[in-house]
Structure formats: structure tokens, C-alpha cells
Design a protein around this nucleic acid. Structure first.
Lengths: 206, 206
DNA sequence: AAACAAACTTGACATCGTCAATATAAAGCT
DNA sequence: AGCTTTATATTGACGATGTCAAGTTTGTTT
């Protein structure tokens, strides 16, 4: 499993880099990842990684891509185990926050400025992220057709708002602004009930 | 207005540093702010800033604190101009996103990992942030008493969820994940209607 | 005037991302 | 087989960064 690294050519540097990078990030956050330390850990010279990633930014993007794959895989696996349609929405919401909590650094990478703002995001990455979101919109449409949420809303808009809610909660949590993790489930539950109530008109006067 | 800087002692370094730092950040983001460049720009040696801020982190925290003051000031000013209670909630929501958009780098600082995760946040900063949130919870309570939103919800929980929504939208926008700024108002409007519908039970079978 | 503390400076160090030039190994062609 | 090309890895170097340590200048207190 480990690299033999007796020869000049490593043989499988690219994936080794990604592995060790994940490990380094898990140990001390994204800031703890430096190209030099990474190369050192893999057992290769400082600049060797640059033959596989043009940039540090490119490396991070690649990690984010893997994150999106893990995201979809985990999502699919979780949802597959839920047969009761009434549980789909709450299940998704709770799963989303669990995922963020379980992979905080990965989540940061996937949705952080690191990858999206500084230096244009890869086409591949953009595609993957958009794919994730598009699939979510489809889920929303499905929920609407099944009457789980109001169907007089633009599914895209509803997806945008609800995603924002989950993303915002995740961020507040991961960034350490929201320290009160004990009542997280309650917060998520209220969010879910708000999603369900969406589209219902409050009893108006006319 | 500009520093005279003929003497050895600057006289008002601390605030000059904050001013120029704000300027530098406005020019090229937080990443464009380096202690050395900052000192240089102010016309002082590299390490002079360290007599006023123990850390780069401390500097950023101080900036974030100013951000929170600006936040409250802007909020107060905006809300003061709205007499119709029905407009309070939508007004707040739209204002929130305007603020984030108008001061992207400041917003990043106020709610970003820079200040909250890496290196413990100052007590002062924590106090200010919590104060902001506490006041928001009070606003929510007020809305409930006026019947603008359902009053059978824990105001704290509602505040947490709605803040998450607004924060999440802001982040997606600022981080460049949400590119479609054209329809932002529509998204905010749906969020508002969801806030209003919250607490109302969907017509159930029993 | 002397002592002290605050504000500021220069010098230095380790770390970082990354370019250029070079060396080595593997693969392809004749 | 040898020769060439291409992919891969290395060392050296540069400029930038955050920040410590030791010294210098100024203002303040006694």
C-alpha cells in the first residue's frame, strides 16, 4: 500500500499527493498544508508536485473534486436506506449537516473561497458542483410532485433558499461562530418545518 | 488629513494602521493585506505595527470589530426609516444581503474563519458578535408579538434558522458559488415568505 | 537631570510558493 | 540494438511573508 520509493520515479505520485494532502489537512486544517511539507511527507523533492498540479490552487481544487464525489456517494447511500417519503426531506437536511460536521476541512475546500474565489475554479470542479446542485433541484421537484412540499414554488428558488439555509448553518458551525452544537438538531428540525410550511399563505385579511 | 510623519513617533499609528488596512483589503481582498505592505504604506517600519497589535490575527480582529460597529450602525439607520411594520422583516432581509454585497471583504472578516477559527477570537469581538445576534433575537421576539411571524416558535431557534439562511446566501454569493446575482431579490423574497409561513402547520390529515 | 517606559528601527530567521536549469528514467522509433 | 523524445524528478535560487531579538529614539515621570 505504501510507496516503495526506491526508484527515481515515484510511479503514482499524483494520487499519493492527494492522499497525503488529505491526511495533512485532516491533521491541522488547510493552513497546515504546504507544498513543501506535502512533498517532504511523500518523500519527493519540493517541486515534484508541480508536474502533476500546476498550482497549489490546482491541488486544492482536485481535493475539492474528490470531496464532491464523496458527497454524492454519501448522499446516495444515505437516501437509499430511507423508504418513507415523509422522511426524505428531514433525512436530507440532517445528513447535510452531518456531512459538513464529519468532514469540516473537506467542506471548507468544497465551498470555500480557497477554491472558488482566488484563482478561477476548474471547469471540472464547476461541473461537479453544478451537478450536485442540479440533482438537488431535481430532488426538490420530486418532493413537490409527491406533495411533500408546496408545488406552487419554483423548485429552483426553493432549492436555492433551502440550500442556503443548510449551507449557512454548516458554515456558522464549522467556523466556530455557532458554538452551541448541543441544540443543532432542534435548529435543523425548525428549518425542516419551515421548508415544509413554505408556499403556504399565512391567513391574510382578504 | 494625511500623516505628517516627520517625527520618529507617528502619534496615531493604531488608527492609521486600521485605516490603511481597510484600504488595502478593499483594493485586493484580505489576501492582499500583508503586515509589511501595510507598514510600508503607512510609512513605518515592518515591525512597528506589532507594538499596537500582537498579531496579524489581532489586527484582523480589530477590523472585524469595526465591521460589527458599521453593521449595527447601518442596520439601525436602515430600520429607522421604515415605519410600516409589515416591511420590517423583508427590509431586514434585503438589507442584510445588501450589506454583505456592499462590504464583501468586511463581511468575510466578520464571519470568516480568519478571525473565528485560527487563533481564538478576542473577548471583545465575541461580545460584539453575540450582541448583534442577541439584538436580532429581540427583533424576532418583537415581530412575533406584533403577529408578523408565528409566535409559537422559540424566537432563538427562529433567529438561528433565518440568520443561517441569510448568512448562507451571503456566503454563496460572496464566495462566487452563486453567480446568478440577477435573481437574488427573488431568492430573498422566497426566503422572506418562508420566514412568514414558518410555524404554520401544513394541512395535515388528522 | 536621571530614570523609565513607550514607540519605533534594523537585522535576522524560518517558511512559503514557484521559476529555471538540470538530471534521470521510461517509451517510442529506426 | 541504439538513438531520440518525452515524462518525471532534482537542486538552486528568488522574492514575499510573519515575527522574534536586540538596539535606538522619544516622551514622561521623578
Amino acid at each position: 500500500m505504501n510507496q516503495t520509493k526506491t526508484s527515481y520515479h515515484h510511479g503514482d505520485l499524483r494520487s499519493s499527493l492527494l492522499d497525503v494532502a488529505t491526511q495533512l489537512i485532516a491533521e491541522g486544517g488547510v493552513d497546515a498544508l504546504s507544498m513543501r511539507k506535502l512533498a517532504d511527507r511523500v518523500g519527493v523533492s519540493r517541486t515534484a508536485p508541480y508536474h502533476h498540479f500546476t498550482d497549489k490552487h490546482a491541488l486544492l481544487s482536485a481535493l475539492a473534486e474528490e470531496g464532491f464525489k464523496a458527497y454524492e456517494h454519501s448522499l446516495r447511500e444515505t437516501m437509499a436506506g430511507v423508504s418513507d417519503p415523509d422522511e426524505w426531506l428531514p433525512c436530507f437536511a440532517h445528513w447535510y449537516l452531518s456531512f459538513a460536521q464529519a468532514n469540516p476541512e473537506l467542506y471548507n475546500l468544497m465551498f470555500g473561497q480557497n477554491v472558488w474565489k482566488a484563482g478561477e475554479p476548474t471547469e471540472q470542479l464547476k461541473g461537479q458542483a453544478h451537478g450536485c446542485f442540479r440533482r438537488y433541484v431535481e430532488m426538490v421537484s420530486d418532493w413537490q410532485q409527491r406533495g411533500l412540499i408546496a408545488n406552487d414554488m419554483d423548485p429552483l428558488r426553493f432549492a436555492q433558499v433551502s440550500w442556503s439555509t443548510l449551507h449557512g448553518m454548516s458554515r456558522l458551525l464549522l467556523d466556530g461562530i455557532y458554538v452551541d452544537i448541543k441544540h443543532l438538531d432542534e435548529v435543523v428540525d425548525l428549518a425542516i418545518s419551515m421548508f415544509r410550511a413554505a408556499g403556504i399563505k399565512p391567513q391574510s385579511t382578504d
